[in-house]
């Protein structure tokens, strides 16, 4: 395992399985601090630049909460309007500035590959909080952390991925990571939103041949994890077709009554109507715990890349 100090977190593919497990081990230690049950000041005197070139409330707040929980401070912006970026400053120059003012950079940017570019221009570590339709490694890691803490392990689980599997960015890196850990996978989606070939081929290269299905109830029969993503209206030429397709894949209490007792339902949030609120009170609902997990996972990454944890 390579030393984490000084490393960038651009893509989950930059890490081996053992390194990912290590990040999750550290995240586990962070849970009581993230809950406020224990105090910790390992980031005392450190500054994180939080550069959100496009808004993302959940990702930004959990990065910032992570830094504050560890006793650090945060500078930055939550969208690009009103900054020099709007005046035409390049990302490279904004990064050079943030690099001079901070110890670590958390960023989100609409262009693919922007985090890789930022990492090249920054001496301090860059944590990618999403680069357009590209990578979103902290989301992927918190998803893996959720599966591991709910199920005890990542590999060996039967995972059903549901919804927009074609355009869903997070779902591609998650699929790749799950196949690396040896999860069995079923992709349930309307035909026009099914998982791209390249992602399926990647699974096969990792030794996992996924099943493709349009029948949710059937796929769920012996599943351990159901990962739901939102089907966006914009993907459909007409509203009636959207209503019809989206209606086929609504997860509710009744559907889950036929599943394993310990099936967990995950969702990157925000949800619209793909998970009925009647699921919230069932033991299946893991999505709020999943959202909380963003904090300890980001705490782990900040501490590791700044060398405060090993």
């Amino acid at each position: 395992m390579n030393c984490f100090k000084g490393r960038d977190v651009v893509s989950v593919n930059d890490f081996t399985n053992a390194e990912i497990e290590h990040i999750l081990d550290v995240a586990e230690k962070m849970v009581p601090i993230a809950r406020g049950e224990e105090k910790n000041r390992i980031m005392d005197g450190r500054v994180m630049a939080s550069l959100f070139f496009e808004p993302s409330t959940r990702t930004r707040l959990s990065f910032e909460a992570a830094m504050y929980r560890l006793g650090g401070k945060v500078i930055g912006f939550s969208d690009a309007s009103g900054t020099s970026v709007k005046k035409g400053e390049t990302l490279a120059d904004t990064i050079r500035m943030a690099d001079a003012y901070s110890d670590v950079i958390a960023m989100r940017h609409p262009l693919m590959g922007s985090a890789r570019l930022a990492a090249e221009f920054s001496k301090v570590p860059v944590l990618n909080g999403g680069d357009g339709a590209g990578q979103h490694p902290t989301q992927c890691l918190l998803d893996l952390f959720t599966i591991r803490s709910e199920k005890g392990k990542i590999g060996g689980n039967k995972v059903v991925l549901l919804g927009d599997l074609k355009y869903g960015r997070t779902v591609h890196s998650l699929t790749s990571a799950l196949s690396r850990f040896g999860c069995e996978m079923t992709f349930v989606a309307p035909e026009q939103l099914q998982m791209p070939k390249e992602v399926i081929n990647e699974c096969i290269e990792h030794g996992v041949t996924p099943c493709l299905s349009t029948n949710l109830a059937e796929a769920l029969a012996d599943a351990d994890v159901l990962y739901v993503t939102r089907i966006q209206k914009e993907r459909f030429p007409d509203a009636a077709e959207y209503e019809r397709v989206a209606g086929l894949y609504i997860v509710n209490k009744e559907l889950l009554s036929g599943c394993k007792k310990d099936l967990i339902v995950m969702h990157p949030l925000p949800r619209v109507n793909e998970i009925h609120p009647d699921v919230d009170s069932t033991p299946h609902a893991a999505y709020f715990r999943q959202a909380f997990n963003g904090v300890p996972v980001r705490m782990a990454l900040i501490s590791l890349v700044l060398g405060a944890m090993e």
Partner: peptide, 29 residues
């Protein structure tokens, strides 16, 4: 939507995945 097609001071960089047939992968996106 690749960052190399914006005004950033960066060169296009590709990794050659396969030579025959030729397949290249952008190192950014």
């Amino acid at each position: 939507t690749c960052v190399t097609n914006s005004t950033e001071p960066v060169q296009h960089r590709f990794t050659v995945v396969s030579k025959n047939p030729l397949r290249v992968k952008c190192q950014y996106c």
